[in-house]
Amino acid sequence: MAAGGDHGSPDSYRSPLASRYASPEMCFVFSDRYKFRTWRQLWLWLAEAEQTLGLPITDEQIQEMKSNLENIDFKMAAEEEKRLRHDVMAHVHTFGHCCPKAAGIIHLGATSCYVGDNTDLIILRNALDLLLPKLARVISRLADFAKERASLPTLGFTHFQPAQLTTVGKRCCLWIQDLCMDLQNLKRVRDDLRFRGVKGTTGTQASFLQLFEGDDHKVEQLDKMVTEKAGFKRAFIITGQTYTRKVDIEVLSVLASLGASVHKICTDIRLLANLKEMEEPFEKQQIGSSAMPYKRNPMRSERCCSLARHLMTLVMDPLQTASVQWFERTLDDSANRRICLAEAFLTADTILNTLQNISEGLVVYPKVIERRIRQELPFMATENIIMAMVKAGGSRQDCHEKIRVLSQQAASVVKQEGGDNDLIERIQVDAYFSPIHSQLDHLLDPSSFTGRASQQVQRFLEEEVYPLLKPYESVMKVKAELCL
């Protein structure tokens, strides 16, 4: 049975990233139509530049190519590739079939990587351009969430054990800070992308030097003109047959890092959902379990974690691919890159769409948070109580021993009897502590235990987050809708 299948058929496997999760716009960027249309555009740009620099290419040939950029006979191309065992030459023939007058000058002087690699770089750039505003929107939604809850005390956790208090907004800023680093890295790697350009079979530009009869300047002009037509500021000066596969490492490393950030955020949300302090959106008709109707599973956060793990592992592909590119190139890269580049971007696209949807509907339960604080705060307040007693004339050592005994009794009630923490009640009825009984409410005010959390939130948002989001103001209103 021949390899390949009808990918629109229910009898043929289709990647869930495309069929179930990723956005239509990201799927289109990695589609065959987008790819092969870009090949034709690159052939047109090459012909236009070659004509401008004096090669015998007519206006009629150029116009014929322009008129057929979208006229792609995919069936013919597939048949040609089956016959020739070469995808680029299959599309040269297919393009030439609908451009008979231009057929002889299509791909003039070029090698397969002229269309293959340059198209990949265009796709990487455009895919990054799709991700950047999506990530900015996630940051914006979380920034709104953090600002609104900047002063809401909550129990902090280290080692997932109760620690000092923080605020809900401050905790959210930990998430935002990681995503801001990801946004900066995505922008950097996007701006650092260079075009492969017009380089020939081993990167020496020998074929173009021959076409222009040894004119170095025209060869350099050709490279520059096509690079500018493709919208790049610069091209690699040095290439082998391909652009260095280190570029793929750079791009997928940034995406993998984004995956790590999203995994951490969504894990926190899942843990908070278990504590009943916070939940992701839950639709009115949504079913959490087929057997347990009360369940409210954090399905979206779980999906993000599941896909983020996949995204983090994909960076190993370009690392290994770059390491086995012998001399000017081997074909070890080809099949692998067809999979890992598309999957990385479709996965990143999915987790950003999902995280935006989550961040637009996060639900906080202040009463649950308050109750958990009441359970733990008495123990945390013991040092403040000791200091207040010393100020009232008591002995630190005597007070410490009193607190120690009462704390152990209260802990026994919590752990052995399943009761509430009654340390404060014990202190309130103990005559030894009568000098500070009137101060206990103040000493137990949760806001006095959150330090500068709310001020940190305000400063972080104003100095770091809002300036970073400013270039994306025009796209901030787009909502994230999930079908599944």
Rank of each mutant, 00 (worst) to 15 (best):
S323Q: 04
L311H: 05
W45V: 07
K66P: 06
F379L: 06
Q456N: 06
D317K: 03
Q61N: 10
K477Q: 14
T111H: 00
L444D: 02
I358L: 15
L209E: 13
A103D: 15
V364W: 07
I176L: 14
V226H: 03
T167R: 02
L314Y: 15
D6I: 08
L44W: 06
T154W: 08
N185Y: 10
C99L: 11
A3C: 15
A392Y: 08
V138I: 14
R188Q: 08
L135D: 04
D59R: 10
E25V: 12
V413N: 13
F433V: 05
K295W: 03
E50A: 08
Q210E: 15
T267D: 04
L331P: 00
P471R: 15
E302Y: 01
M312Y: 06
K264R: 14
R303E: 02
L165C: 05
K224M: 10
N185K: 10
Q51V: 06
S9C: 15
R372H: 14
M316P: 05
H159P: 00
L121K: 08
T158V: 01
R452D: 01
M26V: 07
A102S: 13
K233P: 11
T267H: 10
V92M: 10
M380C: 04
L352H: 06
W39K: 00
E48N: 05
S438D: 08
F145M: 01
E70W: 11
D332L: 03
S289M: 03
T242M: 05
M76A: 12
V262R: 01
Q456C: 07
N336V: 14
L319V: 08
G451R: 03
M89V: 05
P153R: 02
L211D: 06
L209Y: 12
D445I: 10
Q184P: 11
V115L: 14
R452N: 11
A143N: 09
D441M: 08
L222C: 10
V324G: 08
C340F: 14
L377R: 02
E417D: 10
H442A: 14
R40S: 00
L124Y: 10
F232H: 02
F95C: 05
V262D: 02
D223P: 01
C304V: 13
R85E: 00
T158S: 13
T244G: 12
R83D: 14
F195H: 03
A344L: 04
G259R: 01
Q325T: 09
I403F: 08
G259N: 00
M299H: 10
E81I: 00
Q63F: 14
K187S: 13
R245W: 01
L132V: 14
D422E: 08
G203M: 01
S9Q: 13
L272E: 09
F236G: 02
H86N: 00
K367R: 12
I249R: 01
C304F: 02
Y466P: 07
R20G: 00
N185R: 11
V138G: 08
R404E: 02
G361I: 00
K187N: 11
P56S: 11
I57M: 05
L69Q: 09
S207R: 02
H97C: 12
G361P: 07
Y432A: 09
Y432G: 09
T267P: 02
L271M: 07
V457I: 13
I57D: 00
M387T: 14
V475L: 15
V168F: 06
S140C: 15
C172Y: 13
L377F: 04
Q161T: 03
R374D: 07
K66H: 11
R149T: 12
A291W: 02
Q41L: 12
D117Q: 00
I386V: 14
Q458Y: 12
Q375R: 04
S19Q: 14
A308Q: 04
L346Q: 11
V262H: 02
S412K: 14
A291C: 04
S447W: 14
E401D: 11
R171K: 04
F449D: 05
S407K: 01
V414Y: 04
L142E: 06
K479T: 15
L352I: 14
I106V: 13
C98D: 13
R20V: 00
L258S: 08
H97N: 13
Q205P: 00
H107E: 00
F327W: 04
Q63G: 11
D332N: 00
A308N: 05
L258N: 08
M312V: 08
D332I: 00
G200K: 00
C180L: 13
T267Q: 14
F232Y: 08
A322T: 12
I385T: 06
P133H: 14
D144G: 15
P281W: 05
D332P: 03
L443Y: 05
D73C: 09
P24F: 15
W175Y: 07
Q184S: 14
C98N: 13
S334A: 06
T313V: 10
L252S: 14
L252R: 02
K284P: 08
R190F: 10
K199I: 00
E50F: 07
E81N: 00
A77V: 14
E60F: 09
R371E: 00
K66Y: 12
A308P: 04
L271I: 14
V478Y: 14
L155S: 01
F157D: 00
K170V: 00
K284C: 14
I139V: 13
K470S: 15
T202Y: 00
F36L: 13
T354V: 15
I139E: 05
K82A: 12
V262E: 04
K295P: 01
D223K: 01
L174G: 15
T313D: 04
T350E: 15
Q210W: 01
A431Q: 14
S301K: 03
K367A: 15
G116R: 02
L42S: 04
K295R: 00
E280I: 00
M292C: 02
L423E: 05
N126T: 15
L108Q: 03
I424W: 13
T350A: 15
P133T: 14
K35T: 10
L132F: 11
D317G: 13
Y432L: 08
K101W: 08
V368I: 04
D215A: 14
D11E: 10
G393F: 07
M387K: 05
N357F: 08
R404A: 09
E463L: 12
V189A: 12
L461N: 01
H86L: 00
T227Y: 12
K284T: 14
A102E: 05
D59A: 11
E383N: 04
